[in-house]
């Protein structure tokens, strides 16, 4: 499916070949917190139903980029974005249908954040508030737990508090909760950084099965994880002078790790800095 790449180093990285249709098109995106510029001129396309990893050292803007994709930055009053992020023809940056956008673009966070309620209610919470019928909610609970590979472990204890689950289970619950509202894109912000290796492996396995239905974008500071799970990788770096984050290189993961086109990418993946 993925053809040998037209190598994509910085200025020419407008299109990725062999990726299938793009789900998210990030076009000349810059982002500011007040006067501070956090992202500069980021352009790339996230392919549909693939896993795209965003890697880079701390402070390179990778989490910021992820948070632009579902407008999570709206919570910060001084934050502002220029450029465009187009999902299904709709520009995220300028959309007025914020709630629809967030339903379409779900997010899983570094800390699992179980809601203070039962396992069942954690998943049913959003569907209930969205006014779904009880039968549909019930179905969504089972189905999303199943798809998040958690159903077998919790099916006898759905009414227990979600906080009684282990860290890895809580994270899969967060994924189930996210799936329940039928998103198309799932953003994951370092979803495994608080988990042990076994739990991490389970999440990674889960991610690859999820690509049947979802487009996944994962931010990770763990290069091995990016290499293991992702189909495409974006490497970001903080500009040494202006201190904003830039996209250095975006390519199919195997190519980015085996034949990086930019010497900064090579320096990073070979561990010479970052």
């Amino acid at each position: 499916m993925i053809q040998p790449p037209a190598p994509v180093g910085r200025p020419e990285l407008r299109t990725v070949y062999g990726a299938g249709p793009a789900k998210v098109k990030v076009d000349q995106l810059s982002f500011y917190y007040g006067k501070f510029q956090a992202l500069h001129d980021v352009t790339f396309e996230i392919p549909e139903k693939r896993i795209t990893a965003i890697i880079g050292p701390s402070g390179c803007g990778k989490s910021t980029l992820l948070r632009v994709l579902n407008r999570m930055y709206d919570l910060v009053p001084s934050a502002r974005a220029t450029g465009a992020v187009v999902i299904d023809g709709e520009d995220v940056v300028s959309t007025r249908k914020l709630l629809d956008l967030r339903q379409k673009v779900g997010m899983v966070f570094q800390r699992a954040t179980p809601f203070p309620m039962s396992i069942r209610d954690n998943i049913a919470f959003a569907p209930r508030l969205l006014g779904w019928k009880p039968a549909r909610i019930k179905e969504a609970v089972t189905e999303s737990l199943e798809r998040a590979a958690l159903l077998d472990e919790v099916k006898d204890r759905l009414d227990e508090p979600a906080t009684s689950l282990s860290g890895g289970q809580q994270q899969r619950l967060a994924i189930a909760r996210c799936i329940a509202v039928s998103p198309q894109v799932i953003l994951m912000d370092e979803p495994c950084s608080a988990l042990d290796p076994v739990a991490t492996l389970k999440i990674e396995d889960l991610m690859s099965t999820l690509t049947r239905d979802f487009t996944i974008v994962i931010v990770t500071h763990n290069m091995q994880q990016a290499a293991r799970v992702s189909d495409f990788t974006a490497f970001m770096l903080m500009h040494p002078e202006h201190r904003y984050g830039e996209l250095i290189e975006f390519a199919p993961t195997a190519d980015l790790f085996n034949q990086p086109q930019d010497q900064r990418t090579e320096a990073y993946i070979t561990g010479r800095f970052g």
């Binding site: 709630l99 967030r102 339903q103 779900g106 800390r111 959003a126």
Partner: peptide, 15 residues
């Protein structure tokens, strides 16, 4: 309340 809880709720598309 940790900000993550707030963001998790908003990320589900809730007002």
């Amino acid at each position: 309340i940790p900000n993550g809880l707030r963001e998790s709720g908003l990320a589900l598309g809730l007002p």
